[in-house]
Amino acid sequence: MNAPTTFQGNQIGTPVRYDPSVERVDAGEVEAIKGLIATMRYVNEKTFDDSGHAIRSVHAKSHGILEGYFEVDANLPPELAQGLFAQPGRYPAVLRLSTVPGDILDDSVSTPRGLSVKIIGVKGERLSGSESDVTQDFLLVNGPAFGAPTPKKFLPVITLLSKTTDRVQGLKKALSLVMRQVQRVLVAATGRPNLTVATLGGQPETHILGETFYNQAPIRFGDFIAKISVAPISPEMVDLKDAPLNLNGAPNGLREAVVEFFRKSGGVWEVRAQLCTDLELMPIENAAAVWPEEASPYRRIGRIEVPPQTGWSEARSFAVDDGMQFSPWHGLAAHRPLGGIMRARKEVYEMAKKFRSERNGRIIEEPREKPNFVD
């Protein structure tokens, strides 16, 4: 673990204390969120009309559904011992691995990967809308920042992408092949992948279990402000970092790779927090800004352990893909989502949850204890 951040004077590295004034609503945000809701509903309706089954408007396809444990480290320094992490503990958890699109595509259309974590049995003051629940959700993607700074800037991007929902997959596969080549050139030139190119199909075809995931937009971290990351640390998973995975001719190749891995091995991820130490370098209302690790590194706060198991099954999909919702607004008030993109997610995700529940005739509710998956 990195050395504790100092609190002396005004030295560089002193965490910024949370205050409601760190959030500033853009003048066009309310209208932009209305546009996002309408766009995501279009995606929901289009995929439902084509399949007769309601799915998520983003991250529709799951590649792994896992149960394990979320452990909070003991003896954290005061600035990290905040909220859920104030006391050591071990909680049941559900993990869902996914990819970004709102339609179900062959995996050779290679897009950014997601990891959603639902921690069960969490007690404390709750966020509005989750008062009766005992869960804490973290939603993460394999990139350190979001693809747009604000809801207003995100709306035209997602509107354009929504028009490709359920269109001919052959065209998407061809575009993905081109975008992966473009991405290789960009990485060679800049040392960093381009998120827009990845979203258009330029995600490298690598093993999903080798990815490091980030929640991308800031959250309250007790007295402070942070971003969260989850990185593989068990040797078998570390070996999968950037490991090639040929997905051509394997429509569900990512899922098959996850199932094969957990059939033989367990996995461990490290949970990390990056504290905001400078509101200029680490803005709250610009979700596209990468917070520089030179100014504030990610530091360990816990771990996730998943034993060997069935990595995905129709029964697990029925229980989690259809029966659960993941949202950054499920959780403790001490981990309130911050910034425009997070504010937009609250309303957009509630619309999508209601749509899935009504169309599928299914109650979507928060678990109160460790799930008992019957595979």
Rank of each mutant, 00 (worst) to 15 (best):
E45S: 09
E45R: 14
E45D: 15
K46Q: 11
K46W: 07
T47D: 07
T47W: 12
T47N: 10
F48R: 08
F48I: 07
F48E: 08
D49M: 09
D49V: 06
D49C: 05
D49Q: 14
D50Y: 08
D50V: 08
D50Q: 14
S51Q: 12
S51A: 09
S51G: 08
G52A: 11
G52E: 11
H53D: 06
H53P: 00
H53V: 13
A54Y: 14
A54V: 10
A54F: 14
A54G: 09
A54R: 13
I55S: 12
S57M: 09
S57Q: 08
S57W: 12
V58P: 03
V58E: 06
H59E: 12
H59K: 03
A60V: 04
A60L: 04
A60N: 13
A60K: 06
A60M: 06
A60F: 11
K61M: 06
K61T: 15
K61E: 10
S62G: 14
H63Y: 12
H63I: 06
H63V: 05
G64N: 07
G64E: 06
G64M: 07
G64L: 05
I65L: 14
L66S: 06
G68L: 00
G68A: 01
G68K: 02
Y69T: 06
E71T: 15
E71V: 09
E71S: 05
V72E: 02
V72N: 01
V72W: 01
D73T: 03
D73Q: 02
A74T: 07
A74D: 15
